[in-house]
């Protein structure tokens, strides 16, 4: 192979690797393979998942999206908000989180969602996107693991 082409391929692979989401997993979590998005779970069925979604608005921030989540989760789905705050990821981006209590299959579950605004592309010059992290599990499992998950969010990197 042409040395230049080889170099280009290696660099590309490196860049692609750098685009993958990384996080220091909390104790007990294992990452699932063959998933397009980052997804990790525990033996007691707590789940941690990271999405990247397109920002459909022209100008919004994490607080706007947290409020939009509240409107839907509390106003329409009947969840109960149990906490909210800010969180800074491993790249220094300040995001917002909110947690809820709800019922699922007849039992209470805890659920946390965190949102960051970020720009796609190599130098952050691409389109605006939202990084959304979800964590959920049965009430007792959630309560036991949520502190470690919040800590893990601070290690989140692209």
């Amino acid at each position: 192979m042409n040395p230049c082409l080889r170099t280009l391929c290696v660099l590309s692979l490196g860049l692609l690797a750098g685009c993958a989401t990384t996080m220091e997993l909390p104790p007990g979590f294992v990452q699932l393979r063959e998933r397009a998005e980052f997804r990790a779970t525990t033996s007691d069925e707590a789940v941690l998942q990271v999405h990247e979604v397109h920002d459909p608005t022209k100008a919004s921030d994490a607080k706007f999206w947290i409020d939009a989540l509240r409107t839907d989760f509390v106003g329409q789905r009947g969840y109960v908000e149990t906490g909210a705050g800010e969180v800074t990821d491993g790249e220094g981006n300040v995001g917002q989180w909110v947690e809820f209590s709800s019922g699922l299959r007849g039992e209470k579950v805890g659920y946390l969602v965190a949102v960051w605004m970020r720009r796609s592309g190599l130098l952050g010059l691409g389109a605006k996107r939202l990084r959304v992290v979800e964590f959920g599990g049965r009430e007792a499992v959630y309560g036991a693991r949520v502190a470690a998950v919040k800590q893990a969010l601070t290690t989140l990197r692209r």
Partner: peptide, 22 residues
């Protein structure tokens, strides 16, 4: 039970404990 009015934002309709845990 109140009939749920879906969010105007599609990604919000796709997140939540139901989709995450099931």
């Amino acid at each position: 039970p109140k009939k749920r009015v879906r969010s105007q934002f599609d990604w919000i309709n796709r997140v939540g404990p139901e989709s995450l845990l099931e």
